[in-house]
Design a protein around this nucleic acid. Structure first.
Lengths: 192, 192
DNA sequence: TCCTTCACTCAACGGATGTTGATTCAACGA
DNA sequence: TCGTTGAATCAACATCCGTTGAGTGAAGGA
């Protein structure tokens, strides 16, 4: 019925998609507050009013734009979980989705984004924690996740000089000892 | 001459100090964008116009409010540097200054704050790097700093559930193996 | 005491932004 | 072909915020 490339539903679908893509880009670059509906609409080559008509409000647009297909849990052993984490930074799994960057960019200044990130991180902490054989598994898992967060922020969002132009693969490799150190119960103190 | 508790210079000095304190608090809680001159003025029990008159602009107020007495370099050996880093999270050195929290809160959405944080982190990376005996010292140092950043963000700003109500001392202790793992050239792979 | 200085306030401007209602026009079903 | 639906636009409103200029009253020097 409506399969013409210029059918109404098709045009609508494309417009929504363009708006969502633009929203992800602008939110990722500027964060929630500094991102304006006008800038998003302009990048999507659309009238600002259309954005509101389709998504209701800036907040709802944000919610939809940063929603992510949910992370495949991967219930492997501890070592696999660690490798999975490192692979994410190492980009063996593809670049970090713009939706995640948008969420992270806004997490310190936008309460809803903070809540979203916290929820997702809490989830990963719990998953990791249950695979760590130690009393303070929760703490260790939280530190592992925090480390990944810090490296991603410093690399992708802050653009730390020393991490600029360093391949994600090298970063992941150099980081491995630090992460695995958190998986083992207190190691017998290194060389003084 | 002007030592009366209500002398003009004294009143002025106090007002400026109240404004700066309020600014640090509000910037730390909301970040640069969401912090309003009106909110700061209100907390300082002062007219918004006075803030402008004293500090010129919101940006200049921010600059002054987040300026920090510079970090004592502590040119000790690598181990001392690591302990210094951990002590900062462990709060052996006092709570993290609100000026730093304000800066960090804004670093992902406010370009000037980003520049400030990057500069300060770059500095610390260089300092650490020169104490690490390895070819990729820069990378390792950057990862150490990024880790500290991530933990601080997760703990102080994001309020990760698993880190809530955990004493800074325990956090620092649990983190030590991860940090020291980054100081040593590739360790001979742990137990498979 | 007089007059200057200055801390401080008041009211308002100008711009940006999220949001809305009326409007236009092409797609679509009957 | 005709009327309806809905995608898309336009102009405007309301609000908030940084910023400004004029104004007030008390401190302080001569």
């Amino acid at each position: 019925m409506n399969e013409m490339p210029n059918s109404r539903v098709e045009r609508r679908r494309r417009s929504e998609e363009r708006i969502l893509a633009a929203a992800r880009t602008v939110f990722a670059e500027r964060g929630f507050e500094r991102a304006t509906i006008r800038a998003i609409a302009s990048m999507a080559e659309v009238d600002p009013a259309l954005v509101m008509q389709y998504f209701g409000s800036k907040q709802e647009l944000f919610d939809l734009a940063v929603r992510i297909p949910a992370i495949p849990p991967l219930n492997g052993g501890l070592d696999e979980l660690v490798e999975e984490l490192l692979a994410r930074i190492g980009m063996k799994i593809g670049p970090i989705p713009q939706a995640s960057l948008a969420m992270m960019r806004s997490m310190l200044t936008h309460p809803e984004a903070a809540e979203g990130v916290r929820a997702r991180l809490d989830e990963q902490v719990e998953q990791l924690s249950s695979a760590i054989p130690a009393e303070d598994a929760d703490l260790r898992a939280a530190l592992m996740i925090s480390t990944m967060l810090g490296v991603t922020v410093a690399h992708q969002l802050l653009d730390l000089t020393a991490l600029r132009d360093v391949s994600p693969t090298r970063i992941a490799a150099a980081l491995r000892p630090a992460i695995t150190a958190l998986t083992r119960p207190d190691e017998p103190a290194g060389p003084s």
